[in-house]
């Protein structure tokens, strides 16, 4: 019996791979391989979109509009991230359990705050956006809160993990030098975790810009809203203008985060 289960353990992965391949092949039979499988007009549209990639509309009016919309998207992302960072540091530290004195209170603090962070990030920012638009209307606050809550949840969780993963020796040394829990946090955990926390936050900031773009599809203004309007007019040349603004924004943030990271490592 033992032997059988042992040999099953070894081959578990292979068996799973085979099953998945079989399931895939089986699924191919349920596809209706007719001419209507692919949208026939799609090819022409695709060509049109590709072609307009090289002819973005660069009139001063559109550029002006794109600049304002990009600025709005960036502002939502910055404001949302700022709130998210505050939430994440507070909840992340509590979810790491390093401030708790006894084993029991450590478990309690970890459990409760990891739960809260989990709830915050389980709901996508778009859904939060719908909820906030429904409750407080089409205001910038809806966009900012909708970003801050799930991003606070993600950042807080990662912050807690980073804090839990710092080397233990310096912490023990500080403790034996008489540092209290809160002193350990500021002299040990946070300095050791800071560079990882900042570099992850920068990556998340980049994501926040994209999220803020998508969120404006619900009507909250910004570059995403302009892309949506241009798409509805089938004006692909304009769509690309806005896309390029978005790409430039993301690339700039990436450059900034690289510079920041390099300075942190030195």
């Amino acid at each position: 019996m033992n032997k059988i289960s042992h040999s099953f353990d070894i081959h578990k992965k292979t068996i799973l791979t085979l099953l998945l391949i079989l399931a895939f092949i089986w699924s191919l039979f349920s596809v209706n391989w007719g001419p209507e499988l692919v949208h026939t007009g799609g090819k022409a549209t695709l060509a049109q979109i590709f072609e307009s990639l090289f002819h973005p509309q660069l009139s001063s009016e559109i550029i002006n509009l794109a600049l304002i919309a990009t600025w709005r998207t960036l502002s939502y992302a910055v404001a949302g991230m700022t709130l998210a960072i505050i939430i994440a540091i507070l909840f992340g530290v509590l979810a790491s359990g390093v401030l708790a004195k006894s084993e029991l209170s450590r478990r309690f603090s970890k459990g409760v705050f990891r739960g809260i962070l989990g709830f915050m990030r389980a709901i996508h920012e778009l859904i939060w956006a719908w909820l906030f638009v429904a409750s407080i209307g089409l205001t910038p606050y809806a966009a900012i809160f909708a970003l801050a809550i799930p991003y606070g949840g993600i950042l807080g969780r990662i912050f807690a993990d980073i804090i839990n993963d710092v080397p233990k020796e310096p912490i023990e040394a500080l403790y034996s030098a008489g540092a209290s829990r809160i002193q350990l946090l500021f002299y040990g955990y946070l300095p050791m975790a800071a560079s990882d926390m900042i570099s992850y936050t920068m990556y998340r900031f980049e994501c926040a810009v994209r999220s803020s773009t998508v969120m404006s599809f619900v009507g909250l203004g910004g570059i995403g809203f302009q892309i949506q309007l241009a798409l509805q007019d089938l004006n692909y040349n304009q769509v690309w203008t806005y896309m390029f603004f978005l790409i430039i924004l993301v690339v700039l943030i990436d450059l900034w985060s690289n510079i920041l990271r390099k300075r942190l490592v030195e």
């Binding site: 080397p167 500080l174 008489g178 002193q183 002299y187």
Partner: peptide
């Protein structure tokens, strides 16, 4: 305990990311 006993182990006792002065002053945290 810290007023009574000080401990030094191998060289991994310090917080490398902080400047030297803070690692020294950590002895005053008590």
């Amino acid at each position: 305990l810290a007023k009574k006993i000080g401990i030094i182990r191998q060289q991994f006792d310090l917080v490398g990311q902080l400047p030297v002065v803070h690692n020294v002053l950590a002895g005053r945290l008590v």
